[in-house]
């Protein structure tokens, strides 16, 4: 499964902000660390703000901070702000879906989609932060 660019930016931003709850982090800092477009990231941060996940702090030393509950917000919550994952709505039909071959293929793809959704909905921001800390301990060269 590949995530869209905006979704990846959003995940990086949330993880960066949630890892530093006591300070505001500027969009420029995040963009530089992950080598991503500041313009694009700014749009992503606005979307996250509308979703109530981040808050902009104005003024000197301003930036963004994560305002969700890291133990409750899941990867799926963040991803769904930008793209849909999981089984397609029942009404959606692609050419060939009504054939036996199409139905068999659809059954297999739905199994994958359901597992994807179950995985993403069970991993919270806090769990991701734990994984990141563990990764840093095991691979000190990771930034």
């Amino acid at each position: 499964m590949n995530l869209q660019m905006a979704t990846r930016h959003a995940l990086f931003a949330i993880l960066e902000l949630a890892a530093q709850p006591d300070r505001q982090v500027s969009a420029a800092e995040i963009a530089e660390k992950y080598d991503i477009s500041l313009n694009h990231l700014s749009k992503v941060l606005r979307t996250l703000g509308r979703r109530g996940l981040v808050e902009a702090v104005r003024g000197v030393g301003g930036g963004y901070r994560f305002v969700g509950n890291a133990r409750r917000v899941t990867l799926l919550d963040i991803i769904n702000a930008f793209e849909e994952v999981g089984p397609s709505p029942g009404s959606h039909r692609d050419p060939g879906d009504d054939t036996a071959e199409g139905q068999a293929l659809r059954t297999v793809m739905e199994e994958i989609d359901i597992l994807t959704e179950a995985t993403l909905s069970s991993i919270t921001v806090e769990t991701m932060l734990k994984m990141i800390r563990r990764s840093r301990r095991e691979t000190p060269s990771a930034a």
Binding site: R71, A118, T119, S121, I123, T124, T127, K130, M131, R134
Partner: peptide
């Protein structure tokens, strides 16, 4: 797989697929 709370708990303990 729909036991989200329990799955989140076990994942928070470092369990993976």
């Amino acid at each position: 797989r729909d036991a989200r709370l329990l799955m989140s708990f076990f994942r928070s303990q470092g369990m993976m697929g």
